[in-house]
Amino acid sequence: MISLSMRKRFTSVRTYLLVALLLMFVGFPLYWMLMSSLKNSSDIVRLPPVWWPLPTWEHYDELFSVTKFGRWFLNSLIVCSMSTVIAVFLGVIGAYSLVRLKVPGKEVLARSVLLAYMFPGVLLVIPLVLVFSHLGLINSQFGLSLAYLTFALPFVMWVMRDFFGSVPVDLEEAAMIDGASRLEALRDVVIPQAYPGIIATSIFAFLFAWNEYLFSAILVRDHDLMTLPPAMANFASAMDTRWGLVMAASTVATLPMAMAFAFLQKYLVTGIGAGGVKG
C-alpha cells in the first residue's frame, strides 16, 4: 500500500517532469536561434551540430552596420504601437458600449465583430489595397496600422467585452450618482478594474501586428518603411539564405515581446484567466 505522502510526492515529480518536457519543447527553438546567431557561418551548418559555440558577434555587427535593421525595427515599433493604441482605445469604448449601453441587436453586433476572423487575410488584403490606394495610404505606416485594426480591433473588443461584463455595474452606477458622467465613470472606476484585460489584450494586439507579414509585404513597398517580417524575409533568397543574419535578426526581434511578457506576466495571467472563464 503506497502512503498518501508517497503518492503526493510521486504526483509532484511527475508534474515537474511534464513541465520540464514542455519547457524543452518550447525553449529549444529559442535556444537554437540564439546559439545559431552566435556561431560563425560554417558552424551553423556543421554536422554533427555545435551545441555550445564560441560566441561571435559578426552577424549582429553585419545586421546593424550593413542592413537597415535598426530602421525596420523602429518602423515595426511605430506601426505596432499605433495600431495597438488605436485598437485598444476604440476596442475599450466599443466593448463597454456593447456591454452596458442599450443598443438594439447588440448581441448580433458583438458576434459580427468576429467576422473578420472568418476570412483568410489574403481575402481582406485585396479590397484593402484598392481602398488604401484611393486614400493614398499605400506605403504609409499609418495606413498599415489601420490595416492591422482589421484583426486587432475585433480581438480587443471580444476580450474586453468579457472583462467589462465581469465588472459589477453597481460600481459605475455609484460613480454616476457621485457626480461622474458615464465616460468619467468608465475612466475612473471601470477601466482600473479592467487593467489586467487591457494589458493582456494590448500585448496580444501588439504581438499579432509585430509578427504580421502579409499586409506589410503588400501594403508597404518602400524599403525604408518596411516592418521587420517582410524585411527579414529578404535575408533568404532562392540562391542563398543568410542563416546567421536571420537568426541574429530573429533574436533581436524577439526581445521586445519577451521583455513585455516577462514584466507583465502577472497581468497577463489574470487577464487571460478572467477573460477565459467568463467567455
Binding site: D170, L171, E173, A174, A175, M176, I177, S181, P192
Partner: peptide, 18 residues
C-alpha cells in the same frame, strides 16, 4: 442624470471602488 439629482445611494453590494 443621476449626478444632477442631489441624491446619494448606498448599494446592497456597497459598491466601494476597489
Amino acid at each position: 442624470e443621476p449626478r444632477n439629482r442631489d441624491i446619494a445611494m448606498v448599494f446592497q453590494s456597497y459598491a466601494l471602488y476597489p
